[in-house]
């Protein structure tokens, strides 16, 4: 259990999706103007990441890996479908996001109202697909995959809310014209990354 907890902490801070791997940068930069919207997107990412990581794990281990299909019949033991990995993963993510959107719309219109716009955006958030690909690369088991997905989402939420808070304050400062908007945000992200770097070297 403590190993799983360590993995959550590790993927949220040391291997932060944004500062260590640059994943999910597009929505990180585009949706970080206000804390409340950033918070909504962050929570949605946590949810989708911690669900799609184990889902894709099941698909990888039971369908795509070489010999994984042998549970159907021993004739399939030599089939290797790993080349379909990208297509399957993105299909799972896109349809899962669609499904979640429909369920939330049906059962909790209030939540849908506050979250609704960000849900479709998540399908093309690199950190979701990246989470699934890294999980395969690192050979996790299903509990670890879930913990990794949750931790990565947590790291994304933390980073986007922090950046949004800084940018809200930034409105009152004088920034050179050419640096306004994206430029100053990039420099800010660099400085935030520097802060997150202090976690490197910590062993759990």
């Amino acid at each position: 259990m403590s190993e799983l907890f360590n993995l959550v902490i590790k993927s949220a801070f040391m291997d932060n999706m944004i500062f260590a791997y640059f994943l999910g940068m597009c929505s990180f930069l585009a949706v970080s103007k206000k804390v409340s919207t950033a918070n909504g997107l962050g929570l949605a990412v946590i949810f989708v990441l911690s669900c799609t990581a184990p889902l894709n794990w099941l698909i990888q281990k039971n369908i795509l890996d070489e010999g994984a299909l042998s549970w159907i019949s021993s004739d399939f033991a030599t089939i290797d479908l790993t080349f379909l990995q990208l297509l399957m993963f993105i299909a799972v993510i896109a349809s899962f996001v669609q499904l979640v959107e429909m369920i939330i719309e049906k059962f909790s219109p209030a939540l849908y109202g506050s979250l609704g716009i960000f849900l479709p955006l998540i399908a093309v958030n690199c950190s979701i697909l990246g989470g699934s690909l890294f999980m395969v690369q690192r050979d996790f088991n299903i509990q670890e995959a879930t913990a990794f997905g949750f931790g990565s989402g947590l790291g994304f939420w933390l980073a986007i809310v922090a950046l949004a808070a800084i940018r809200e304050k930034l409105k009152y400062s004088h920034v050179p014209n050419g640096l306004k908007g994206l430029g100053i945000t990039m420099l800010l992200t660099g400085l935030m990354g520097l802060a997150f770097k202090t976690f490197i070297g910590m062993t759990l």
């Binding site: 500062f19 260590a20 791997y21 640059f22 050179p176 014209n177 050419g178 640096l179 994206l182 430029g183 100053i184 945000t185 990039m186 420099l187 992200t189 660099g190 400085l191 990354g193 520097l194 770097k197």
Partner: peptide, 18 residues
């Protein structure tokens, strides 16, 4: 490290937009 990339891109954007 990633930090260098953020800073170089930030400066590049600054130069281009100016």
């Amino acid at each position: 490290d990633s930090i260098g990339a953020f800073i170089i891109l930030g400066l590049l954007i600054w130069a281009q937009r100016t």
